[in-house]
Amino acid sequence: MTGRRSNALTIAMAVLLIYFLLPLFWLFVASTKTVGDLFSSFGLWFAHDISLFSNIKQTVTNDGWVFTRWMGNTVFYAVVSAGGAAFLCALGGYGFAKYRFRGNAAMFGAVLGAIMVPTTALAIPTYLLFSKAGLVNTPLAIILPSLVSPFGLYLMRIYAQDAVPDGIIEAARIDGAGEFRIFFQVALRMLAPGIVTVLLFTLVATWNNYFLPLIMLNNPDLYPITVGLAAWSSQASAGGGTTGAVLSLVITGSFLSVLPLIAAFLLLQRYWQSGLAAGGVKA
């Protein structure tokens, strides 16, 4: 571990980096173009007119500011689901890690096995059950299924195993603290990096969720951004009455929609990296 650097390695990695950033660069370039230039200029470079701001304005105000509503919905669904999922996982993971009770291993195994269930297998029956409960076309239809994160539970269990030393729990018990008080006042803080990790990954999962809201929601006012963009995109592709101009909205909208998640990952990177370390090593 000396301070020497390898130029060859840096260049090789730079090539790889270009590959990963190229489509995003295209997206940025495309969102600066007018509809006409979008179809008639070279894709990977800017056209003569830079109309990024007018595109943004058009995208955001189109159809009575529906884009901002979709973004707001997405943030709401993602934050509530991710917060709830992280809390359930922290509580459950701690329980599985720190208590011995009948069925511990069996239950945990069942949860892990559930990762393998294909999502489409669940979508239709969930829809039918939700409609019987009157939950279809409400925010709960998106939030409730997103509260279950088997991977999150797995991560939290592994993390809790070592991050919260048994000795500290024991000491707290001797001091007369109740089990839940120990969890909330002692363990929770130690679990923070793990919780942030689960929070971020469920945040991504809900943010990118497409299939579930697609079938659960009928009312465009409740759409998250993915379904909204796909709806615009299918307007552009279904023909009959609408025009290719929508495509420009789809592109600018896509560009705007990826910014918040990227920002969240950049800001919180210290946490999720250490949280993941636990899951990876102890597998």
């Binding site: 990963f20 995003l24 497409y210 993915t226 995109s233 896509s254 929609s257 990826v258 998640l261 990952f265």
Partner: peptide, 19 residues
């Protein structure tokens, strides 16, 4: 490099397929 390569994970597959 670390962040750049990780960035695509934050892009919804709807957008990735479009691009």
């Amino acid at each position: 490099f670390r962040l750049g390569i990780f960035l695509p994970y934050a892009v919804p597959s709807v957008v990735a397929a479009l691009m």
